[in-house]
Structure formats: C-alpha cells, structure tokens
Write a protein that binds this DNA or RNA. Structure first.
Lengths: 242, 242
DNA sequence: TGCCACTGTGTATGCCGCAAGCAGTTATTA
DNA sequence: TAATAACTGCTTGCGGCATACACAGTGGCA
C-alpha cells in the first residue's frame, strides 16, 4: 500500500506528523483557487504552472511542492469547482425528487464552470468535495431496495450523462433560450452537406423531424428528456426489487 | 454558411472541383491510419505532428495541408478507430436486442483502442464512420413509437455511458476477470484512508457492501447493470407512448 | 544544545510540441 | 502561354512541463 499522493494528503488534511522545514507559504486550496480564477476569467488553456504560480506570488517550480504534476493540479481545480454540496433535500421527498435535485445541482455547478467539463477525466472520485457529492447522491437513494452496487452504478450513469449534456450544449452554443429555427441547425446543417439519403436514411429523417420539433430551450428540454430516461430506468429497477 | 473544414472535405470526398497544384502525396486516411498505429503501439501521448509526419514520410508541417490543427487530426483518428459498423442485426429482433448489440459493438471498438476514450471530446459526430454508427443506432430503434428527439437522446445517453464505462474500467485496471477481493479495492481502499463515518456514512456502507458483492468480472457485470438501467428507461418511455 | 536530515522556495535548464511564414516545384485554369 | 492555386520542405518562434540543484528554515534525536 503506497503512500497517499501529496495533493490528496493536503486536501484531506492527512499529512504525516512532524514535518520539518519551513512552513508552506500557501495552502493547496489557495493554489487551486488561483487556478480556478484563471480558468474562470481566461479559460482552461490559460491555466499553466507559470500563470498559477504568478497568481499566488510564487515562481513556477514551487508549485511542485504541492502537486506532483499538472494533472494533479487540475484534479484540485475540479474539486474546488465543485465545492461542497450545500443544497437540502425537501423533507419526506421521494427518491426521484431527490435525485432530480442532485442532478440539477451538479449541472448548475458544471454550467457555472464550463471549463470543468473539458478537463481530462482521471478516474474515480478521490477528493473531498467530489466524494461529498457522491455521499449526497447515495443519501438521495437511501431507503430504496437497490443494492449498493446498483446505487453507485445509477449515480455514475447520471453524473456522466449530466457532464456530457453540459459539455455538448456548451459546445453547440445551446445553453439558454434560443431561436427554434436555429437549434441544432449548426450540427444538422453541417451534416446535411455531406450525408446522402441512400446511406443515412434514418439520420436524415431524424434530423429533419428534430428540426420540426425544435426545442425552445434545448438545454432544459434535453435535460428533462435524458434525466427522465435515466430515472425511469432506476424506477424500473426499484419496482423489480420491491 | 462557411466552408466545410478541410479534414471533413477530405473524409467525405467533398473537395471542390478543379484543384490546381501537385497531387497530394498521401490521403487523409493514410495519415489518420499512421496516427492510429502510433497510438495503438505507444499510446496517445506518442502521437505528435512530428511522429505522424515521419511515419508517412513527410516532414512535420506538411500535415497541415490535410488538417488545420492537431485537434482535427484526433477527430480523424477517432473516426478511423471506429471504422464502419460491420455487424448485422438479427432478423425480427426486438429493439432491445438491437440496441444491446449496438452498445456492445461500440464498447468492443473502444476497448480495442483504449486511447480513444482519452481523447478530448470535440462536439457532436461529424465524420463518416461516427455518423454511420449513429445511423445504425437509429436503425435499431426503428419501429418504436419514440420521437426523433427521443431516439437521438437515448442513443446519446447510451454512447456516453458506454465510453465512460470503458474509460473508468480501463483506468481502474478492471477489464477482464479479476480477483473478487481486489475489485474496486484500489478505489475503495484509497478512500478508506481519508473518509470518516461521520461525514460519509452512506459511502462507507456502500463501499463495504460493494466489496462483499464484488463482481467476478467488473467490466461485464457493470456493463449489464448500467446498460440494463438505460434500456429499462427506454422501455418505460416506449410503454408510455404506446 | 548542537547536528543533521528533511522540507520550502527560487533559479537554471533541457526538451518537446504546436504552428506561422516563406521558398521552390507542380498542375490546372484563364 | 502565363498566372495562380496547391503541395512539400525548411526555418523559426513561442510556450509549456518538469528535472536538478543551491540555499535557507525547522523538527527530531543523541
């Protein structure tokens, strides 16, 4: 069993006792917050070891006293972007209402920090805030007959879907109310120039019909559609276990 | 309406007529295939404009005659990694069986190219093979009462979930049969060192129970779990529309 | 109390990657 | 036939990540 990575030691307050040497000039939270501020203002590509170091009054290489790599820095950033979950579940609410709230809160956090969905994904959650959100998701499913594996599996599916929804909506410029005639036209309009009816009959039909039914607010309506589908799947599973 | 990006023109065979100048020395497929071969052999980080150029007998900057950026090169790589869908749906099969096959085939492709799930996602599908897979997914849902938006939404949810499943399983070293006592122990064992029962009661319970019920083959069993949930959701939607 | 190992910061440096710009050659169009 | 667009190689600039080391500060131990 190897030692905890440095950044996790720091984030969790789990440093070994009796560290010698000068006291650190900054906390890992300060460093992460500086990186988040840069990403918020100038986008993810503006976050470099150098820009972050400058923002906290260090020189570049001192950051490696807190994180071993830039990848670890981005993990810290994501944890800070998430922050602790502060919402409350209504009293006596159904699991469905609670999970819906959980998913909406996550999407809100992600939307406030669009750069967070562009970060490379580095594995399962390990940081304090990320795990706090997992805990809140499990709390929402408390009292259901699902096994633990089924609970974790369901939360993962919703989380992954939600991230992708934010990312795709952002990339397509479809966050917020939009002209129904313009919704998805950038994607469909583009593929219309290359696909032929012989090879892509279903796609052409689906695309045209989607334009007819175009959402007034793609982000919100597709959120309901996709989350509804996932919740229905969970409901079916619960019904089978009852 | 702007011009099609160069790489899409090339991939779709949609170049304007009458291009002057020397004939290109390579096709975009050849360049993409060289990049895929490098990624297969040495991993994604070994793919640089330089290494790809060398592999096809060019110098670095000539690649920009085919793609405008490295990002476009990775889109070409992904399309080639997918290849055209070659599977067949059984005659008279249910939508559920067809979608299951579709999802499994995608996962197989992704598993054969684990680097493909690490690529940054650049928006909705635009390339020939990627769109062919979408077409096959729509074909699997033909005959169901779902609207086109619901169909696209369902396919997207499954695709996204499948990619994440491959990525996470690969990152956690959980592809193929494994010692049940070791499954997820790397993740849970790690968080056990930092989480406390007061703050994370549900997580600790879920983790311990998951270890008790540990899968013999995490990848396969979690695939069934997660896909089952999504399919149940689609089934509920279909039942409501019937 | 003094010595020494460990730790925090700055500095110097190396290597690599992406891509703008230009020169020379090739093939099509006017 | 001349002009022009397109293909390739070459040059170059800039920025980023991270190894290694010097110096100063702090705690553990004899």
């Amino acid at each position: 069993m190897t030692e905890l990575p440095r950044y996790l030691q720091l984030l969790w307050g789990r440093e070994p006792e009796g560290r010698r040497g000068p006291k650190p000039g900054r906390t890992i939270e300060e460093i992460g917050a500086a990186a988040v501020a840069i990403a918020d203002r100038d986008g993810l590509e503006a976050v470099s070891m150098k820009s972050v170091a400058q923002a906290v009054g260090f020189t570049t290489m001192s950051l490696y006293r807190y994180v071993d790599s830039k990848e670890e820095l981005t993990a810290v950033m994501l944890d800070l972007a998430y922050g602790p979950p502060t919402f409350r579940y209504p009293r006596r609410s159904t699991w469905r209402k609670r999970i819906t709230l959980w998913a909406k809160e996550i999407a809100t956090v992600r939307l406030a920090r669009p750069w967070s969905v562009e970060l490379a994904q580095g594995g399962p959650p390990l940081t304090p805030n990320a795990l706090s959100w997992t805990e809140r998701g499990l709390e929402a499913l408390a009292g259901t007959p699902l096994t633990s594996q089924e609970r974790l599996s369901a939360l993962l599916a919703i989380d992954v879907w939600g991230q992708n929804h934010v990312r795709l909506s952002t990339q397509m410029g479809l966050v917020g109310r939009s002209d129904p005639d313009r919704v998805e036209v950038s994607w469909f309009g583009l593929i219309l120039r290359v696909v032929d009816k012989e090879r892509f009959p279903h796609l052409l039909t689906a695309g045209a019909e989607s334009l007819d039914d175009a959402d007034e607010d793609f982000f919100e309506e597709e959120f309901e559609r996709g989350l509804g589908l996932l919740l229905d799947g969970i409901a079916a599973l619960i019904a089978r276990q009852s």
